[in-house]
Design a protein around this nucleic acid. Structure first.
Lengths: 198, 198
DNA sequence: CAGTTCGCTGTATGTTCGTACAGTCCTTCG
DNA sequence: CGAAGGACTGTACGAACATACAGCGAACTG
C-alpha cells in the first residue's frame, strides 16, 4: 500500500517524533493553506516548524520544491484513502466506499481542504495538483473497469469530474454558505449539494 | 437607478474614454483576479493601466484603498444588475429575473468572477465583500417581502445563501470541471449544479 | 579513534516591494 | 496675466523577501 517495505505503524505521531524535515513540510501545508503560497514566507515556515530558515533551504532547496513536497503529501493522502478499499462488491459500492474514505480523510485535515481550495480554484495555477488527482481517480476507475465492475455509459473524463466534484466540490462552497448564514446571526447552515448535469 | 442624476449612456466605453483613475481601478480588478491581491504589485497595476506608480498612489493612496475601490465596483455591478428588474409579477419571477441579470453581468465580466472566487473562498479573508453582497441580497428580498410578493417559510439567512449560491456557486466550481475534462482530451464539459439542502 | 557525513545555525546579498515626495505640466479662474 | 490646484512623472528609501553560504557540532562508519 505504502511505498515502504516496512510500513509505519498506524500510531498517531507526536510532534516530537517527527523529523525536522517532516515538521517543516507540515508547517508549510498549514501556512500555505491559511495564508496562501505567496502570502507565506520561508521564515514563517521555519518559525512554525521550530527551525531556522537555513534548514528549510537545506532540506528543500527552494520554496517551490517545498510546495512540491506539500502536494506530494496530499496526493499520497488521497492515494491511501482510496487504495485501502478492497475490490469486493459492486462497482457502485466500491466507489461509495472510496468517497467515504476520502471525505473522512479530508474531514480530519482542514489544512488540506484549505490548500486544495486555494490551489484548485486558482485560475492562475498550472493545475498540476488537480491533474494528479484526476489521474488518480482515473486509475481507480480503470481498476474497476478492468474487474468488469462498472458499466457506465459516461466517459472517463466525465466520471472523473463527477468523482472529484463529489469528493471536494461541497467542501469548497460550504464555507461561503456558513459565513453567509452566520452573518445573519443564524446557526445550523444548510448543506451544499453539487451535481453534474449534461 | 444609478447614483448619477445625469446617468451615463449605455455605450460601451473605449479604453481611451476612461479617466486614468478608472483605468487604474479596472487594471487592478483584472490583475487581482488573475494573480491575487498579494501577487499583484502596484507597479504591475500602473503598467497595465499605462501610468506610473506615482499616479496610482496619487489617486488611491494605498494598495488597500485600491482594493476597496475594486470591491465598490463589484458591489455596484450587482446592485445595478438587480435594481434594473421592475417589481411586477410574482416574487418567484422577479427573483428569477434578477438571477438572470446577475448571471448575464457576470458572464461578460470574467475578471469579476475570478476576483469573487479568490476573495469569497479565501478562508483568510475578512469576508467584507461577501457580507456586502449578502446584505444586498437581503435588501432585495426585503423589498419583495414588503410588497407581499414572497411567502417563503425559509429564513432570510437561508434564502440569501440560496440566492448567492445560485448566482455564483456554479461559476466557482465550473473551472475545475472544465479543466478536468480538458485534461482527458475531451471538450463539451458537463454543467455544475449547486443546490442547498436542509 | 580519526574521518566523513549530515542536520542545523547565523549572516550576508541582491531583488522587489509599498510608499513618500519633490517637481513638472496643464487647466481653470479671477 | 498670474496664482492655484490637480493630474502626472521620476526618483528615492526602508522593509521584507528568497536564496546563498561558511561554519559548527553530533552522530554514524570503518
Amino acid at each position: 500500500m505504502t511505498a515502504y517495505p516496512h510500513a509505519m505503524p498506524a500510531v498517531p505521531a507526536r510532534p516530537d517524533d517527527l523529523t525536522a524535515k517532516a515538521r517543516i513540510r507540515n508547517a508549510a501545508l498549514a501556512l500555505f493553506a491559511g495564508g496562501g503560497y505567496d502570502g507565506t514566507t520561508m521564515r514563517a515556515v521555519a518559525t512554525a516548524a521550530g527551525v531556522t530558515v537555513g534548514l528549510v533551504v537545506h532540506h528543500y532547496g527552494t520554496k517551490e520544491r517545498l510546495r512540491d513536497a506539500v502536494e506530494d503529501l496530499i496526493v499520497a493522502a488521497f492515494t491511501e484513502a482510496t487504495a485501502s478499499v478492497k475490490i469486493v462488491g459492486s462497482g457502485r459500492d466500491i466507489g461509495a466506499a472510496r468517497d467515504r474514505n476520502v471525505a473522512q480523510m479530508l474531514a480530519s485535515n482542514t489544512a488540506m481542504v484549505d490548500y486544495l481550495r486555494r490551489t484548485i480554484l486558482d485560475p492562475n495555477d498550472r493545475g498540476v495538483l488537480l491533474n494528479r488527482l484526476a489521474d488518480l481517480a482515473a486509475a481507480n476507475l480503470q481498476e474497476l473497469r478492468a474487474a468488469g465492475l462498472t458499466a457506465s455509459r459516461r466517459s472517463t473524463a466525465e466520471q472523473v469530474a463527477a468523482v472529484l466534484t463529489a469528493q471536494i466540490g461541497q467542501l469548497f462552497l460550504q464555507p461561503m454558505v456558513d459565513r453567509t448564514v452566520t452573518h445573519f446571526g443564524e446557526s445550523d447552515p444548510p448543506r451544499i449539494v453539487v451535481r453534474l448535469e449534461r
